[in-house]
């Protein structure tokens, strides 16, 4: 790099060249100092998936177990049908984390994220229709809203992100 300065056509060109070399050198130095890649351990991911999709999956299991009883209320049937996205999301996230499988799963994860987003919006619309987002609503519905709508949405968005990221063995762009 430094030897090229002798061949620069003008002082301004030499200065510009030298400045670029300093930047390139600093960039390379910072690059070699990066020892962390920002990837999350699979054990932490498993805990995250259980936290995000576990409550909805448990609710779905409960609903399915009670759906066949003759006096089951209609809400149980609705939860048994619509809540199936919980175990599906849990299964896909676990499959991805434990086996590294990614092929074809991103569109499914995107679909799940859309469904969870709709669930969040429906919950908020319901709250607005019943007196607005007041402290009272959060006290009585907040935990359900977080466990069954917000956390699954956050988990599914993270899953979409993971499924869209480049595998560590893929060639890097230069």
């Amino acid at each position: 790099m430094r030897a090229e300065l002798d061949y620069a056509k003008s002082d301004a060109a030499a200065l510009s060249w030298a400045f670029g070399c300093v930047l390139a050198g600093m960039n390379e130095r910072v690059h070699t100092m990066m020892i962390a890649n920002g990837r999350i351990s699979r054990w932490i991911l498993i805990v995250e998936w259980l936290a995000c999709f576990g409550p909805l999956t448990l609710l779905w299991c409960f609903a399915v177990a009670n759906a066949f009883s003759p006096d089951a209320p209609s809400v149980v049937l609705v939860v048994a049908a619509a809540g199936a996205i919980g175990p599906l999301a849990l299964a896909i996230s676990m499959l991805t984390t434990l086996t590294g499988a990614q092929r074809g799963l991103r569109p499914v994860a995107q679909g799940l994220a859309v469904l969870f987003a709709i669930a969040v919006l429906l919950r908020l619309a319901d709250a607005l229709a019943n007196g607005g987002l007041r402290l009272q609503w959060f006290e009585s519905n907040g935990s359900v809203f977080v466990l069954l709508a917000l956390l699954p949405l956050a988990g599914s968005l993270h899953l979409v992100h993971i499924l869209g990221s480049r595998p560590s063995n893929a060639p890097a762009a230069v």
């Binding site: 090229e4 070399c21 390139a24």
Partner: peptide, 17 residues
């Protein structure tokens, strides 16, 4: 490097990395 920079119109900070 300088020859390549002149021909590609890339600055040294882009070229060398």
């Amino acid at each position: 490097g300088y020859d390549l920079s002149a021909q590609t119109q890339l600055k040294s900070g882009t070229l060398y990395p």
